[in-house]
Design a protein around this nucleic acid. Sequence first.
DNA 1: ATAATTTCTTATCATACATCAATGCAGGGC
DNA 2: GCCCTGCATTGATGTATGATAAGAAATTAT
Lengths: 200, 200
Amino acid sequence: MGSGSSFEKMRQSLQQFAALGESDWLLIKQQLEPRSFKKGDLFVKEGQLCTSIGFLNSGIARVYYLADGKEITSYFNAGNRNMFVCSFSSFLSRKPSFENVHFLEDSELLLLSYNGLQELYEKSPAIQKLGRLMAEYNYVLSMERIYSLQHLPAIERYHAMLKTYPGLMNQVPHHYIASYLGITPESLSRIRKEAARKEK
Amino acid sequence: MGSGSSFEKMRQSLQQFAALGESDWLLIKQQLEPRSFKKGDLFVKEGQLCTSIGFLNSGIARVYYLADGKEITSYFNAGNRNMFVCSFSSFLSRKPSFENVHFLEDSELLLLSYNGLQELYEKSPAIQKLGRLMAEYNYVLSMERIYSLQHLPAIERYHAMLKTYPGLMNQVPHHYIASYLGITPESLSRIRKEAARKEK
DNA sequence: ATAATTTCTTATCATACATCAATGCAGGGC
DNA sequence: GCCCTGCATTGATGTATGATAAGAAATTAT
């Protein structure tokens, strides 16, 4: 489980968006800084600028913010999904984050700084293209999320969540998931009860 | 009101995202095809591939789809907002559109084909960068929309809509707006009544 | 192991919004 | 002009979910 394999994992993940030549990959790799976090650690804190993006190799991250004194979960990121984690709105717009990012399990990341990423974009059109494709992909995903929030009842959002994050119900406190679904923990409990009843 | 000014309008709009040199702009301009639509015309039809993106110079466009036999409005686009219109998910993912795009008023567009756009991306890193920045911007916007759908009551979403689309209430049928807000026309009517009461 | 804390469930009540149904209103075609 | 048709409003009623509170279960600390 050396860091070699963790880099490779990230490379695979990027390749899903666009072919990435050896030289481009080396450029990226040079900018990566491996870092470990303990369960409960904060990666991004509300009010601070999010200056780097992290590829989540293992562990579970949760992005949330406070509204009316309540924690609202924006999204989760589990290592098996092999994606990036940060406060995207802060990172992309260069404004202080309104979100917190913390880890629900010990996690390993490959960090890429904002400045490092901009350098990569300037140096390599292929990486710039990769960035565009990933942004477009996330945009399409978020449109799907808008659809589901607007027109699917909570129970269907629950089932969609089970597909998106398999196993998550057993890994993290349920009230985090409830706030991700846009419902109260009590409602989630009722929904689970109802779903379990239908199973039989 | 020649086509010259309409090109200029689009250029201004793009400049908000990134500086655009004369040569890059000429490349783009060569790919643009002005087209007029009549009120009621369809730009993208459900089931078909959305093969071009259109800069909306004047008029009003509406993007909607059918769910459970009901029309759901994804978003509007009015000429004064100077942005692009199409089924982004179809255009970006190259899959048949589940959305329809039609015009609520006579409208003028500058069309840019998918292939034309890819050519531009390959030819010019600056344009590729512009594409990335626009995708990122739209991603951040859609995250804000997710927040508002998840945590603002209908009346606040109504007020947010009034800010986002000033004048729209007087320009388009209300039930289109209701479905955009994720509520029924009846609820919108009651919200308006309540809002008018508070005005006094 | 025991206590302390957090998390999960259950119950009751309140509320926002949906649904169903009826009426009023305006624009387009005859 | 008049009728049609689609749209907006209003009222009555239903339902899903939120708010609050309290107890059970699980996790963490001592």
